[in-house]
Design a protein around this nucleic acid. Sequence first.
DNA 1: TTAATTTTACCGCTATAACAGTAATTTTAA
DNA 2: TTAAAATTACTGTTATAGCGGTAAAATTAA
Lengths: 69, 69
Amino acid sequence: MVDLGLLVKKHRKKAGLTQLELANLAGIGKTTVFDIEKNKETVRWSNILAVLQVLNIEVEFKSPLTENG
Amino acid sequence: MVDLGLLVKKHRKKAGLTQLELANLAGIGKTTVFDIEKNKETVRWSNILAVLQVLNIEVEFKSPLTENG
DNA sequence: TTAATTTTACCGCTATAACAGTAATTTTAA
DNA sequence: TTAAAATTACTGTTATAGCGGTAAAATTAA
């Protein structure tokens, strides 16, 4: 899954939240939630993190270096 | 690994790049690279993505929903 | 169908991230 | 040790993300 916008949307729906409710829970504006779901990459990392936290989504970074040592 | 700043720094070092070189390769300012390595979360998602791309680091989002279906 | 809800879209305003420049500090190499 | 390179830190300016308000589509429910 590379589509963060769709991922957020799916999780939001599963949680039974509207964009506005998710925005309020994450402490951000509704416009930003909309932007995230539209894969607008100019949003702040902190705002994405706030949304992911509400939806219980974890972030992982992977590379050849992280695999071994 | 949750420390994105340290992760970026390690990969940058491994690639033999200075912050300025990484910034130029990623097409962003040196200040932003510095901020990312300092785990400043107010940076733009697009700028983080640009840095990760240069360093060949992939992003993965995980949750109970992404595991099964 | 109609009404209610939600999403999408656009608008200014404000707050601030991004930036280059500079300088001080720290690290590395000679 | 000294010199060179890199990192950290700060500053002022500029560009723009974030925001609420509003309204139009789209979706859902009755």
